[in-house]
Write a protein that binds this DNA or RNA. Structure first.
Length: 458
RNA sequence: GGCGACGUGGCCGACUGGCUAGGCACGGGCCUGCAAAGCCCUUUAAUCGGGUUCGAUUCCCGACGUCGCCUCCA
């Protein structure tokens, strides 16, 4: 039984599915107004790992992840750069999915856009007003947090506690708000701003409403899991929940949040601190699989330090697995070879580890152990080797870790490798060394074995 | 001020009330024409002070330190 920490109850508990065998998940996607950063990368990778693992377990996962394509920041940037806001959102979205592709993150099953759901948001806000949970002011429509009995359930703080000591903080929004924590559901537009009609006046959606509407619309009430970065816990997720509760609807039944990405000093990577690292830069500089590897070796709820040293060591660890894939190539158990059943005990242990709150660090330790056992078995020519090799491929696949050389070995390099084998067979070691250096200069890691030269990208 | 997390070996980073996490780096060996890869071996741990316990890095309390959230950040 797969168990997962639930932010709401603060305990690791079984992840229950409305329809056993089918998991309905909502993941808060990006607001498309800039390039993706490391934090986005972590969140998408964590949930991609969750998804792939559960699918590997035979569960059908429906993953809905939105694109928020209308927001103040988008409008600000459009004004600043004097171009249509749709131009920004379209470009950013394409950059986003391109980056996700390079990370090996599967596209969500559904990608709803906020702008496609404005009518439904208007309907929802209307209902909230009718139920007495929302009210209009001169600049928009606000949700009354006091009308939500358990407001603060996710933050694990009462409204009073949240207000305590926060007096020096600037209260955003109109003075007309009934409570400082009330938040805008609808914002009246100024001339020239994008706007949609509503019974209260032309405007645009405020905060957090799109996720409520889209998750309930696509997944229905009481859907299984809602996830996102730890920074979304409050206020974003709290306020989503508040709207659903005020509507009288059952919202997500399990909440999952991944930890922050921190810089070398251990400080949270944040836009306001200006210490964000562009995800695209990381992807350009390193093997894109390295970030996945680094995250697999860290528990999803722990903060992760992303720096040169860290990534380097992940690249090296990946190199070890690639070598394993290279040397086990063609052996029973390898993808190309005749199908051999993966070692059942090894997989059972893997499942046991992963089912305990997505314990990927221990799963990786288990994979490395299996690699060692497989290597030993290969060296000894033992029959179990095939089953162990198959197990490694199975487990890595379940985590979305693609093994093998990055990039194709081109024909020229392959020819050099053959020449190298020939030189070694002829005991012309001077020529062999020269060929090896040539290949290394081309960026290959060259492994000469009795079975022939294996090349992989370094 | 409120709520919460964390402090592990050279670095990163887990689990765990007693039994080697793992990765990376370092050293020694085997293998190799030499390397690489692989295998074997060796070596460094739990911020501090109390308590519970036969036994605590692990549970409890306190101190110190770091970090996060307390309205638009993944």
């Amino acid at each position: 039984m797969f168990a997962l920490y639930d932010t709401l109850t603060r305990e690791v508990r079984p992840l229950q599915m409305r329809k056993p065998g089918n998991l309905d998940v909502y993941l808060c996607g990006p607001t498309v107004y800039g390039p993706p950063h490391l934090g986005h990368g972590r969140a998408t990778l964590v949930y991609d790992i969750l998804r792939r693992y559960l699918e590997w377990r035979g569960i059908e996962v429906r993953l809905v992840s939105n694109i928020t394509d209308i927001d103040d920041k988008i409008i600000d940037r459009a004004n600043r750069e004097r171009r249509p806001w749709q131009d920004i959102t379209q470009k950013c979205e394409s950059v986003w999915f391109d980056a996700m592709g390079r990370l090996g993150v599967k596209r969500p099953t559904d990608v709803p856009h906020a702008t496609e759901y404005v009518d439904q948001m208007v309907d929802m806000i209307d209902t909230l007003i009718t139920r007495g949970a929302a009210y209009t002011t001169s600049d928009g429509v606000y949700l009354s947090v006091e009308s939500v009995p358990d407001y603060g359930a996710l933050a694990h703080q009462s409204l009073e506690d949240m207000m305590a000591g926060g007096g020096d903080r600037e209260v955003l929004g109109a003075q007309e708000k009934r409570h400082p924590s009330d938040f805008a559901l609808w914002k009246f537009s100024k001339p020239g701003e994008p706007s949609w009609p509503s019974p209260w006046g032309d405007g645009r959606p405020g905060w957090h409403s799109e996720c409520v509407v889209m998750s309930l619309e696509l997944l229905g009430e009481g859907f299984d899991l809602h996830c996102g970065g730890a920074d979304l816990r409050f206020p974003h997720h709290e306020n989503e929940r508040a709207q659903a509760v005020a509507l009288g609807k059952t919202f997500a039944r399990h909440w999952m949040h991944n930890g922050f990405v921190v810089d070398i000093e251990g400080e949270k990577m944040s836009k306001s601190l200006g210490n964000v690292t562009n995800l695209l830069d990381l992807l350009d500089q390193f093997d894109p699989r390295a970030y996945r590897m680094l995250l697999l070796q860290t528990h999803y709820r722990s903060p992760v330090k992303v720096g040169q040293d860290n990534i380097d060591s992940s690249v090296k660890a990946l190199g070890g697995l690639d070598s394993f894939a290279a040397r086990s190539h063609g052996l029973p158990g390898d993808h190309g070879a005749a199908r051999v059943l993966a070692d059942a005990d090894t997989l059972a242990r893997f499942v046991q580890i992963m089912d305990n709150d997505l314990d990927t660090p221990n799963a990786m330790a288990h994979i490395f152990d299996t690699v060692r056992r497989a290597n030993t078995a290969i060296d000894a020519g033992e029959a179990v080797a095939g089953a162990l090799v198959a197990a490694v491929h199975e487990m890595c696949g379940a985590l979305g870790l693609q093994l093998g050389s990055r990039g194709e070995v081109d024909a020229d390099a392959q020819a050099l490798a053959s020449a190298l084998d020939a030189a070694r067979a002829a005991k012309d070691f001077a020529k062999a060394d020269a060929l090896r250096h040539e290949l290394q200069a081309l960026g290959y890691v060259v492994e000469t074995t009795k079975a022939g030269t294996a090349l992989r990208r370094g």
